[in-house]
Design a protein around this nucleic acid. Structure first.
Lengths: 238, 238
DNA sequence: CACGAGAAATTGTTGAACAATCCGCCAAAG
DNA sequence: CTTTGGCGGATTGTTCAACAATTTCTCGTG
């Protein structure tokens, strides 16, 4: 299953094709708009990894022409949210063990670098503390999605220390791929609760100005998270 | 000038449109092929930064349809080699001071991180030493392009220490943008010769296992290079 | 000389068409 | 019974022609 996702998607978009009524402003960049819609559906888990995105079905379902949809596909393929196989079609990316290793290769470089050499302003610190509080509240409430959100927000903020839009973009792509990994796992284990305290410690060290300790701790944290995730993936591959 | 580059490009592609005769294998991914061609022309400096890439002219010049060319544009825009302005067209990116700062923000994070935490194998070290020798030979011969090539190769190899394809891709994008910066400067100063010795020192420290010193030296090197480049850019803006 | 109306050119998007390729199915041979 | 081979059918890759929307250029007017 999980193949041929056009029908389920069409159900969600019943009533498209006609103008949304709020205005005519959306005539700008239909292709980019479609890319945004698909990106959202994939991130929300409505389009599961590995499912095929048929050009004909999707174009009629979304009310755009095949050419425009194709341009959107190019964008998403560039973000590696989607995999394009020549003459076979495009599929929602389904990251495996190798992709996970690549994800953590990137994170192990960028995040500690940001901690070591980024510009730590009081505003960013307060933002981070708000995020870890949100994560703690989510853990107490037992809400896994909120914990995942807070976790990703924190690590995105860490990369934000660099002040670089490119690194931010790369990190967002990586986090999106992480989300796909979780979506691909049938049983979603409580993966994040183990690491909330580590995040608290990270922010504390940052506030205390102990950058090297923060970076070192972050690296061991990333190693542990990668190992646990790979373990779950190996189990799943039965 | 430097606007409307289609005519000069058409001159270089006279004789396209007919099959190349070597075989029918090129039916795979015309759009990607076109993107490669344009990427090469821009990197070679035939398409100068800021010049407009007209859809109609280029499509006829390259012998592809407007739709396919459009898909290639999407790819290049994703690599930020090209800038797309809605309803205005696509232009070869012309990086300015802010882009240079962004470039060095990225490099100041990724490269020292690779030096600190990457996997330094003997093969990579030998490759790097070969590259710095090439750079020294180019300096002695007074060949600026070869020096630039060697310099970029070295820094690409540094990022290669991470083992991450994504970081490699990002670095290649950044280096491509650097090339655009140089192309945009009317007078190409001898920018690289000052830094050959620094690169030698970097490799020596890497071989000696002095990673922290190597990373620190690399960061000061990047700072100096950024400052000099920004100075040249400010002069040029007269 | 400024300025606004209209025309020309260019981009954004669509729909249809055809070639090339892949997939599933069925028949025939071993 | 399994395997090989081919034959449609479906899907993707690419092109072409057309039209709407927007920008840019031109030119006449005050």
């Amino acid at each position: 299953m999980a193949i041929e996702a056009a029908t389920e998607l069409a159900k969600g978009t019943t009533g498209w094709g006609s103008e949304t009524g709020s205005g005519s402003a959306e005539h700008a960049h239909t292709a980019a708009w479609i890319a945004t819609v698909l990106r959202g559906r994939i991130a929300a888990g409505e389009l599961t990894p590995g499912s095929k995105l048929s050009e004909q079905s999707l174009s009629t379902a979304l009310g755009v022409s095949r050419n425009t949809l194709r341009e959107a596909f190019s964008t998403l393929a560039g973000e590696s949210i989607v995999t394009r196989i020549p003459n076979r079609g495009v599929f929602v990316a389904s990251p495996g063990a190798e992709e996970v290793r690549e994800i953590y290769r990137v994170r192990r470089m960028i995040e500690p670098a940001a901690v070591l050499w980024g510009e730590v302003t009081p505003e960013v610190l307060e933002n981070m503390e708000a995020i870890v509080e949100r994560a703690q509240a989510a853990r107490d409430a037992g809400s896994v999605p909120e914990m995942a959100d807070a976790n990703q927000a924190l690590h995105s903020a860490v990369v934000g220390l660099t002040g670089s839009a490119s690194l931010r973009t790369l990190m967002d792509r990586v986090l999106a791929e992480m989300r796909l990994v979780f979506h691909a796992m049938a049983s979603a284990p409580d993966f994040h609760s183990h690491y909330v305290d580590r995040n608290v410690q990270l922010v504390e060290r940052l506030r205390a100005g102990q950058r090297e300790e923060a970076a070192a701790g972050l690296r061991t944290y990333l190693n542990a998270a990668e190992a646990e995730l790979l373990g779950h993936l190996a189990d799943e591959a039965s």
